[in-house]
Write a protein that binds this DNA or RNA. Structure first.
Lengths: 166, 166
DNA sequence: ATCCATTCTTTCAAGTATAAAATACTTTCG
DNA sequence: CGAAAGTATTTTATACTTGAAAGAATGGAT
């Protein structure tokens, strides 16, 4: 079974000697760990300080950026979650008075939801704390590290989008 | 409202002029987006190719690394999810014959679960595909980028752990 | 030997999430 | 106009997840 060493380009080599991709796996694991650590810390602080869940905070954050409101489908796309999920989240936020519904001016299928004044006020308070928490959690990185990370993750993000949807 | 410029250390400045932390927020958003994009792509491929959910794959991946099996608590810690969550996942994997239970040799409170031969075989197949998918999704990064990212995320991870638990 | 804090698992309720099918509406084009 | 194609939302079913509480077992201290 011994073979003479042969020069091969990268693609051929990958077919002949299937790489174990160990490095990429470790990177993915670390990326996942970082995200999970931050996310669960934020989740528990939101609950402790404001009695709010992270998905609800995220939904309100999207609406804050659209003062005129947004359709459920638009919310679903921006939050990168399923339609049915958004329906349920909106229902609960309507009950608590943070959101209000309007008919879509042009499209009778669509519903537009927007923050109520109370919801907007509530979100403003939470967003301030949230930004400080994120900064605190990222404080281990020097400013140069932050921009390095932005750049590298930007490249990763656009490549993943290509692979996934392209 | 004009003020004479004053030299302040970082902490004082943060109190006087509460920073908006825009950069850190953008970094967090991008980190989250990258993770979610990859995760949902992997999730849908696992379902399409193997009819398996990501949580179940993750659980099997932990058990693969411990041929003698593992207690539920240990699984819960390594997967960074709640105890009750693991109980449910294990139940379903027992039903499908991928896992088996043994009493813990020394501790009667604990339950040890391990992959069955079928589970191990199944996981081996999936793990191979999974590693290739991750490598494909990371292919946008040069090898130097990968190690840069590893280093930067490593720093972030340890700092977050300190802030969260320390 | 008994108490007690801790650890391990299960259970429960509420909430979050997906996928797939169903329903309702709009636009386009014949 | 009216059918077809496409878009928007809801519904349904199932699965995942957490947080909290409860029960069983352990190990150490008295």
């Amino acid at each position: 079974m011994t073979e003479a060493p042969v020069l091969l380009d990268a693609e051929t080599r990958a077919h002949e000697h299937p790489a174990d991709h160990r490095t990429e796996l470790r990177l993915w694991l670390r990326l996942l760990t970082c995200t999970n650590l931050i996310e669960s810390e934020i989740r528990s602080r939101l609950r402790r300080h404001f009695g709010v869940t992270l998905p609800r905070f995220d939904l309100m954050a999207q609406l804050e950026k659209a003062p005129a409101g947004m359709t459920l489908g638009e919310l679903s796309r921006r939050m990168m979650v399923s339609n049915g999920n958004v329906t349920g989240l909106v229902e609960r936020l309507l009950e608590t008075g943070h959101l209000e519904r309007h008919p879509h001016p042009a499209d009778r299928r669509a519903v537009v939801v927007a923050l109520t004044p109370i919801g907007r006020q509530m979100f403003a308070t939470m967003a301030l704390a949230h930004a400080e928490w994120i900064a605190e959690l990222c404080a281990g990185l020097a400013p140069a590290d932050v921009s390095q990370l932005m750049r590298l993750l930007g490249g990763l993000k656009s490549h993943v989008k290509e692979v996934a949807h392209g």
